[in-house]
Each structure stands twice: as C-alpha cells, then as structure tokens.
Amino acid sequence: MKKTELLMDMPVTVEIADEAEKQDVETVYDYFRYVDETFSTFKKGSEISKINQGKLKISDSSQDMKEIFAKAEETKKLTLGYFDIRKDTGYDPSGIVKGWAILNAAKILRKKGYRNFFIDAGGDIQIDGQSKNKNWSVGIRNPFNRFENIKILNISNRGVATSGTYIRGQHIYNPFNKDLPIKEIVSLTVIGPDVYEADRFATAAFAMGKKGIEFIERLKDFEGYMVDKKGMATYTSGFNSYLYNNGKNN
C-alpha cells in the first residue's frame, strides 16, 4: 500500500510492503499533522510560535517540546555548535523535528506489527525491512537535474537524509558566520542508523561546508555522499557498501 500527501509543504509518502490496513497508514498522516500543528513556526497558534512570542515558557511546554529542545541541545554539542535551533527570529527546531517525527511515525507502524515499509518526508527517509524480499532501492537525486539520480542505494533498516541549498536557496547557514553563504557544496546525503540520526547530522555537516563529509567519515555507522558546485562528489570509505555489487559492474 502506498500513499503520498502534501504535508508541511512537502510530499510525504508512506509505502508498506506488508499487507496493510488503510487506517494504519492514516495514523501516520494524523501524527504528522499533529507535529505540524505543534512545531510549525509558520503557524501563529503553534506551541513553538507561542514560545517565540514569549507567551509560553519552555519549562511549561509539552513533553514533546521539551524533548525536542533537549535533543537540539545535545545535537549542538555533538556538532560543536554547527547545529543550532536558535535563529535571529527565535527558535526554529525544524532541522531536528523532521527526522524525529519520521522516526516516531515509523515506530507507530512497527508497534502495529509492520516490518517492511518506508516513510519519506521531503526526501528524508526511514527504511524498514525489505520490499519483495529485496532491500529497498533509494536514488540520490541529481542536485543539478531533478529528473536524474546520481546514485542508487540498496537500503534496509536505515535512515537516509539529504541536505542541500539548491533551487530554494540558502535555507541552511553556518551559525559561526551567518553572512557567509554555503555555496561550495550543493548536496550532502547521509545514511545513518535511523532517519533522526541521518537528518540531524546531514544538517550539521552541510553547515560545515567542505569539511562536513570528513565529519561524517568519523561518525561510526554513518556514510555520506557530498556533491560540490562543480559536480564532483566526495564520499565516505564505507559508502560503496550500500551500492549494488558494492559499486562494481554497475
């Protein structure tokens, strides 16, 4: 069963390879709607907006909000400050909420007994199990041509996330130098133990510029594929293990 819906201004796709109940897929979308209502900085009435307006203290906020703030703080430390939800306009936790929400949605499906599915929200993906007894195949989109893939990965029980600046412009920036646009690299794809881990480290590593891929290289259980503005890719030592035939004869 496969469904795509536009949520949080991005296509959200759920595909369950197991025999599935329609209402179970709907619980995933209900969950994403709740996350959007709570964490969207574009919605004036959301909990995060109330915090930014000074109407709500973080200490008085919901469990989920407190969890996100704690996770953001932890991620900031792990990335030496490159991951930061503090913006000039207030808190914007979207860089951590997305991966967290996708993983939570996957946990909902797991609890219902599903073992083979993926959840894709705007190109960040949690992949569980297999499809037709084969690992799921995941394309890395060409940052210069959205109709092309530049890699085809073979993935099971992992998270995949891509950070980039292209087309929409600089929506990720370097917190140590806000005025310096990130333009050396156009796309960084990270494969991690789950989508939450992949997403937060992809976001932080992307903000590091060219050095970001080295950061990924030194993380255990993470691989990455970075594309620079000239169309040159730099990738981690274990990345090829996710390619079909380890990248040979492919």
């Binding site: 995949v160 891509t162 796309s187």
Partner: peptide
C-alpha cells in the same frame, strides 16, 4: 557525478526541492 539508470523505490533529495 554520473547519471544512473534504473528504477528506484524512493528518492532522497534536499528538502523543498
């Protein structure tokens, strides 16, 4: 980078693209 042919189940790309 090189364009790859072949069907895929999912595509990973930058958000909002």
């Amino acid at each position: 980078i090189q364009s790859q042919t072949g069907n895929v189940d999912i595509i990973s790309g930058a958000t909002d693209t």
